[in-house]
């Protein structure tokens, strides 16, 4: 009971600033933090804000692609790393992307891409984002991996299941909460990441993500169009969650 109340308060904490952000999407002036009056203008302007919508779309592509790749690679790494004697070198490598300062990774990657003369674009942002996302997915899945009884896996292998079957039928279902949590984490990190994306991109509109676009607006004013867009994204996602819940309940009761 007390935990349920705690959870409700936690949601209140998480959504409080989101409510403010939504209110600010109706702010008359373009000031980011000062309320000056009510307007619907920013929603109307949003329809013409091609750069912003385009950047949002790019962000979605980068986040989805880097999450997919990082989830697969990171999960495999976790399985491999946990089924062997502890190796400090491997642990260090898997910790590294989390603790290397963003700016170091950002400049290092650009120097590397320049060295190998790679064309920059959305693809290079994905390549870069996968680097840190791998580490986060791997760390979550590894904790889950430690809870699995190795005897269960050995039983599967002893019964003649191939490694792939063991992975798919035994390991993956048990790792699922970790894999899902890792994927959600890496998607969220990618959606907000700015400095590595900036340095990995050629910065043309085709390869500008939303955080890059928003930070470039800081100098001449981050206008409430951004709030309007975030509001729409929030409400849309919220509705999706509700619908999914409803459908789920129907599937069970009906």
């Amino acid at each position: 009971m007390i935990f349920r109340w705690h959870l409700r308060l936690t949601y209140l904490f998480l959504y409080g600033p989101i409510a403010v952000l939504m209110v600010l999407s109706f702010n008359r002036s373009g000031l980011p933090t000062a309320w000056t009056g009510f307007t619907f203008d920013w929603y109307a302007k949003l329809t013409e804000a091609d750069a912003l919508l385009n950047a949002a779309w790019n962000t979605l592509i980068v986040a989805a692609a880097s999450t997919l790749l990082a989830t697969i690679i990171g999960t495999m790494l976790a399985v491999g790393a946990e089924s062997r004697r502890k190796s400090s070198a491997l642990d260090a490598l898997l910790f590294a992307p989390m603790i290397i300062p963003d700016i170091v990774l950002a400049i290092g990657l650009l120097s590397f891409y320049t060295l190998v003369q790679m064309t920059l674009g959305l693809h290079s942002i994905v390549l870069s984002h996968v680097v840190f996302n791998i580490a986060f997915v791997c760390a979550v899945v590894r904790t889950r991996m430690r809870q699995i009884d190795p005897a269960m896996l050995e039983a599967s292998r002893d019964l003649g299941a191939s490694e792939f079957t063991t992975f798919r039928r035994v390991l993956l279902p048990n790792l699922a909460p970790g894999v899902i949590a890792g994927a959600l984490l890496s998607f969220t990190l990618s959606v907000d990441e700015f400095i590595i994306a900036y340095f990995s991109s050629d910065n043309t509109p085709a390869a500008t993500t939303l955080p890059m676009q928003i930070f470039s607006m800081i100098r001449f004013g981050v206008t409430p169009e951004i709030n309007a867009m975030a509001t729409i994204v929030m409400l849309f996602s919220f509705t999706l969650v509700l619908i999914a819940q409803r459908a789920d309940r129907k599937a069970i009761t009906g």
Partner: peptide, 15 residues
């Protein structure tokens, strides 16, 4: 192409 600060575009050009 857009940049947020002088420092950022400068870092990029040097790298």
């Amino acid at each position: 192409a857009v940049h947020a600060t002088n420092e950022e575009i400068m870092g990029k050009l040097v790298a």
